[in-house]
Write a protein that binds this DNA or RNA. Structure first.
Lengths: 342, 342
DNA sequence: TTGAAAGCGATACCAT
DNA sequence: ATGGTATCGCTTTCAA
C-alpha cells in the first residue's frame, strides 16, 4: 500500500519549503509565477491531493455541506423531489471538492439535535434549508450556531441567509384560468400543510386567482401526504352535486395521484366526471392514467443553483439571492371540460 | 462566541495530562478507574466533544460512511426506497457519532470517480453498496482501494464484504401460487434489469415457480423504469386474446403503477380484466386505484441493519452477514379471479 | 497508572 | 519571494 503523498513530498519534489507549497497551491499572492508553476507541476506529477482532515484542522472548514431532511415516516417514501435535487447538488459539490452530509430525521427534536451536532463538530460549512415553515425556527438556530445557510424560498422571518426562489404565481394563475376556460365553475384546492411556506403561498395564490375569476373555490387543508390527499378527495366527492367541484387542484403530485385513485374507485371517469391537477411536477404524474396536468419543476436545477449559492457564501462572497425560471403549466390528460350533469 | 473546549481544557479541569484524558475517554485499558471517572465527569461538566477533524488526522478514520447512488436521471424520481432507507441508517449513525456522506451520480464513470475520491481523501470509513450488478466491479474497486463496505444482497463475485440479505423466494412463491389459485393460467412477469442481481433473482424465481405450477409464463425485460414498465404492458396487452396474460407481476411497484395506468387507458378494468402486482412494496401502491397487491418491504429496517453491520466492521469486528425477515405477500385490490372471456 | 513529547498534514506567521 | 517554525486538537509512543 502506497503512502499517500503529503505536502512535504511536493515541497521536496519542487525543491522548496512546504509553506511555499501551501501558498502556491491555494493561489495565494506573493509567489513567483515560475515557482508557482513548478510547484503545481510537482504536485500533479506525484498525484498530491490535500488531506481534508488536516486542512479542516487549521482552516476550520469542513469542505462539506449539510442537508437535514425532516420527514414524517408516513410520507417519507412519496416525496419525489429529493433524489434529483441531490443529484443537482452533487454536480457542483464534486467540482469544488466538497461532499454532502445528509441526515434524515423523523421529528423536530431530532432535527434540532442534528443541526446542533453537525455545526458543533464542524462537520459542515453550511446548511441547505428546504421545506421552510412559518416562523421557521431554523433561521434563528443557524444564527445562534453562527453557521451559514441557504433557503429554498423566502423565509417569513428576518434572515441574512441568501434564498433561491421560484415564482409559482403565474403558473398557478395559468392553471386556474385554464380550468376556468374549460368551463369549470367550482374548483377545489387540496392544499398542502399550512405551516409550510410554499403550501400556504400556493393556497393563497389559488384563492386570489379564483376570486378574480369569480370561481367558487373551496380549500381543504392537508399535510401533503397521499393519505390526506385521498381523504380530502372523499370529502369533496361526498358533497351535493350542486356544490361538488368539477375540478380539483392538488398541492402536490403524489396527492393528486392518490386523489385520482379515490375518484376512479368511486366510479368517476377522469377527466369527464372530474378534472385533476398537481402543482409541483414530478415524474410519477406521467405514468398514471390519465397523465397528470401539473406545473413543471426541475429539481436538478434547484440543486445546482442552491449548491453554488451556498458555496459562494462559504467562500466569503456576499450573499446573493437567485431566481429559477418560473413554474409553467403542463397540460396532460387529467383535465378536460366538465360534462354537463343530466 | 465561546471557544470550544478542547482536550487540554478537560485535562486541566481533571488535573491530569491530556494523554491520559485521551486514554480515559476512549475506554482504553490502563487507566485507574477512579481517575477515569473523574476525567469523564470533567469532560461532561465543561461539555467537551471530540473534534472530528483532529481525531481523523491521527486515527485515520473519517467517522463517516459513504453511500454512492447511481441513478439514471430518467428513473431517479420514482425510486421510493432511499429516503426511508437513509432514515434507517441515520438512527444508527447518529447514535454512534457518525455521519452519512451521500453522492448521487448519473453514470458509471462518475460513480467510480466518486468512490475513488471519497476513499482517497479519507472522507469515509466504508461504503454501502446498493443495487448490486452482475459481476459488480465495485467489489473489486473497494478491494483495490482497501476500504471496507457492506452489500445489500449477496454479490455473484468473490467478496470479503459482509452482506445484508432478504429472502424473496417464498414471497414470490406465495404470490404466484396465489394468482394461480385465483384461476390465472397465463401470467407475465415484467422483469427488472437483468444486470441487477435482485432483478435477475426475482425473474428466475418467478420462472421456477411458474414452471412448477405448469403455468404459461412470459417474461418481458425492462430497466425498472416506469416508462419501460408501461411499454412492456403495451406489448403484453397487444397479444392475441388466447395467449395474452390475465395477470402481470411487475418487478417493482412504480412499474406496476405505470402498467396499471396503461391497462386502464386501454379500457381494461383491474382486477376484472387484468390482475396486477408489484414485487417490492412501497407506499405508492396503497394510493393508486385499485391498491396494489405486492410483497412487503421495510427500508428503515434495511437501513438500521446495514449501518450497524458496517460500523461493527469498521470498529474492527469480524464481518458477519445478517438476514432480514423474509418478504411476505400483501394482498390488496389489484388482483382477483380472471373473468372468463365471452 | 501517569506525564511528557512526538507526530498526523496542513495553514499562517515571522523572519530574512 | 522564500524558509523556518509554531499551531490546530487529538492519538500514540516512551519513560518514569
Amino acid at each position: 500500500m502506497e503512502r499517500r503523498p503529503t505536502i512535504v513530498d511536493v515541497a521536496r519534489q519542487a525543491g522548496v519549503s512546504k509553506g511555499l507549497v501551501s501558498l502556491a497551491l491555494n493561489d495565494r499572492p506573493g509567489v513567483n509565477q515560475a515557482t508557482k508553476e513548478r510547484i503545481q507541476a510537482a504536485a500533479a506529477e506525484i498525484g498530491w491531493r490535500p488531506n481534508p482532515a488536516a486542512r479542516s484542522l487549521t482552516s476550520r472548514r469542513a469542505y462539506a455541506l449539510g442537508l437535514v431532511v425532516k420527514r414524517d415516516p408516513r410520507i417519507i417514501e412519496t416525496d419525489p423531489f429529493f433524489a434529483a435535487f441531490i443529484a443537482g447538488l452533487e454536480t457542483v459539490l464534486s467540482d469544488r471538492g466538497q461532499v454532502l452530509v445528509l441526515s434524515v430525521v423523523p421529528d423536530a427534536g431530532a432535527e434540532e439535535r442534528s443541526y446542533r451536532s453537525l455545526a458543533a463538530d464542524g462537520r459542515v460549512d453550511g446548511f441547505i434549508l428546504t421545506d421552510l415553515l412559518r416562523h421557521d425556527r431554523r433561521i434563528a438556530l443557524l444564527a445562534e450556531l453562527g453557521v451559514r445557510g441557504v433557503t429554498l424560498g423566502e423565509p417569513d422571518v428576518p434572515t441574512t441567509l441568501p434564498a433561491v426562489r421560484r415564482e409559482y404565481e403565474d403558473g398557478i394563475d395559468d392553471l386556474v384560468r385554464y380550468l376556468a376556460g374549460l368551463g369549470h365553475e367550482r374548483i377545489a384546492h387540496v392544499a398542502g400543510n399550512e405551516d409550510m411556506l410554499h403550501g400556504r403561498a400556493r393556497r393563497e395564490q389559488f384563492e386570489r386567482v379564483a376570486a378574480a375569476l369569480g370561481i367558487e373555490a373551496r380549500v381543504v387543508p392537508t399535510d401533503f401526504s397521499p393519505e390526506q390527499g385521498a381523504d380530502a378527495t372523499r370529502t369533496l366527492l361526498a358533497l351535493d352535486p350542486g356544490v361538488r367541484p368539477t375540478a380539483i387542484v392538488y398541492g402536490n403530485d403524489p396527492m393528486a395521484v392518490a386523489g385520482m385513485a379515490v375518484a376512479q374507485g368511486a366510479g368517476l371517469r377522469i377527466p369527464d366526471d372530474l378534472s385533476v391537477t398537481g402543482l409541483d411536477g414530478s415524474q410519477i404524474g406521467q405514468f398514471v392514467y390519465p397523465a397528470l396536468t401539473t406545473l413543471d419543476n426541475d429539481p436538478v436545477e434547484w440543486g445546482r443553483v442552491v449548491a453554488s449559492t451556498l458555496l459562494d457564501l462559504v467562500d466569503g462572497h456576499e450573499p446573493v439571492d437567485r431566481s429559477l425560471t418560473p413554474a409553467r403549466l403542463i397540460v396532460r390528460g387529467s383535465t378536460g371540460a366538465p360534462t354537463p350533469r343530466h
